[in-house]
Design a protein around this nucleic acid. Structure first.
Lengths: 239, 239
DNA sequence: TAGATGACTTGATATATGTCAAAATGGTTG
DNA sequence: CAACCATTTTGACATATATCAAGTCATCTA
């Protein structure tokens, strides 16, 4: 299975005009209002800006309102590993609950906006609203499942399978957020894709070229069109 | 950083005689009793037995009381990836909260016992006991951090670094559970280690042999002794 | 205890991906 | 628009790990 649709949020975020896509369906009007109070703090980040850094004190989760972020963990010796690409509607910062400090850093890949979700308040509210509690648990669990999908990818797939899985995952998430499943612009460089997939950028580039030669995709720099979804899927499945 | 100390549990499990190691410190007597009611169901599994399988309906988390389990995800084409090795005191099943179905399977690596923690009840209780709620959140977050550590390992470390990180992680978890940090018996085969680390069993075996030739470890089949922890650590750190 | 079976080690060789280098392309800024 | 810089592509070559193949060693059962 490719890395899964990740933590797309259906929590809160009403003040952020994400009412329609971000709310758990089961809330009463009054619960809704309380949720709105929670998430009234909105912030903007320029491309390249840090939402948080490794070691920062944890206070809030963030719901991405627009734009996208990458998360990465840094190794002592300077090596870095991109651990996720997050887009609008997804929740970022779950790693930090564990120790009250962030264990990775989050960088905007384009100009982006987030809603702040103060965690203590979120916990309070979820004690009172069972459906919200369950929702929060699901979001965290989904992140675990997503990570295990990436472990599968990194541990047992070859370069082109990894890239195919990656493209299909982007495709699916784009579709989920109402965008095209077959045409999109990559927000990340070959280097970042390589880090995420455990490959060197040259290998990523060659895989892109090879897919294009095979008629699987059309790619020009960061503009990608998936021409043959079924064949991409079989590529991931078997080999 | 090597894969982190994983989800060692301090929840519940009083009836399971894990009172001393498993309880969040901050509970009152009455809260304690309620927790005990929660976790009164104990089960045994023989080596090779399934705690759950992919697709099983999710009802409970499980606290491992004794023994150990491996979790693995299966790829359509039959490839499998071991995603974790869990030992006594750790919590298993967090992946399933996401969809209410298990997304991986858990197999006992030796004769083992678990406490069942019915999740709905756990949620109820954690709505009423904030310190328990926070604890549950930390356990889930810790699993996320652990998985990201493994992603770093799989994505950016070479074979011997991976094995060194793996051994150091086992060492640390053993120590956490009051066992020797330098001498232990592996509960898993070279094949399983290889799957977990994204390597073939021959590569794992060669790395073991090489470490032994270098005086880093003493290894005979599954009995391992770490002879030079500092040098193992530098091996993981830089290269 | 012997025999059988699966686990592990070791060697020779193959191959996927990494490395190094150069050229082409695209985007950005004055 | 031009010049510049970063990004991407492509090629030639190097290497870590996989693959294939024996052979040895452990563990379990009869």
């Amino acid at each position: 299975m490719p890395p899964n649709t990740s933590t797309d949020l259906k929590i809160a975020c009403s003040n952020c005009n994400l009412r329609e896509i971000c709310l758990p369906v089961e809330l009463t009007e009054s619960e809704m209002h309380r949720l709105e109070d929670l998430s009234n703090n909105k912030r903007s980040y320029m491309s390249g800006g840090y939402l948080y850094r490794t070691g920062d004190r944890f206070r809030s989760l963030h719901a991405i309102r627009s734009g996208s972020f990458k998360t990465r963990v840094l190794h002592e010796d300077g090596r870095e590993q991109v651990t996720g690409f997050l887009m609008a509607g997804e929740i970022i910062g779950l790693d930090a609950i564990s120790t009250d400090f962030h264990t990775c850093e989050a960088v905007a890949m384009e100009d982006s906006e987030v809603c702040e979700l103060p965690f203590t308040k979120l916990e309070e509210l979820s004690r009172e609203i069972p459906s919200l509690q369950r929702h929060l648990h699901k979001i965290m669990s989904r992140e675990i499942v997503r990570d295990q999908g990436i472990m599968l990818l990194l541990g047992s797939m070859r370069a082109e399978e990894r890239l195919a899985a990656f493209l299909l995952n982007l495709s699916q998430r784009n579709a989920t957020h109402g965008m095209s499943a077959t045409q999109f612009k990559l927000r990340m460089s070959r280097l970042e894709i390589g880090s995420y997939l455990g490959l060197k950028l040259e290998t990523v580039s060659r895989a892109f070229s090879h897919f294009q030669d095979d008629g699987l995709i059309q790619v020009k720099a960061r503009a990608v069109e998936l021409l043959d979804l079924p064949r991409l899927r079989t590529l991931v499945g078997k080999s």
